[in-house]
Amino acid sequence: MSAQEFTLDSLKRILLEAAGMAEDVDLGGDILDTDFEDLGYESLALLETGSRIEREYGITLDDSVLTEARTPRALIDAVNAHLMSGATVA
């Protein structure tokens, strides 16, 4: 069984569902390495986003994943690492 991949598009969709978008932010731009805070998402928005990722992908993320991932790239990598390890175990 091949592991699902968590993509930037998936993250953007979940961010919008979880927390909407700030007025002066363009999620369509190159945001992979932009700090979540500069994108208008504070810790609670990320908590809600993490909770939705967990539900959708059937995984459990450590609290530290959400507090340490400062950018979309870091969060995507952390989620994918989790998905891969889950797939390997399975």
Binding site: L16, E17, A19, G20, M21, A22, E23, E48
Partner: peptide, 8 residues
């Protein structure tokens, strides 16, 4: 309101 505020 901006969409950022609606879910919260």
């Amino acid at each position: 309101l901006p969409s950022r505020l609606l879910p919260q």
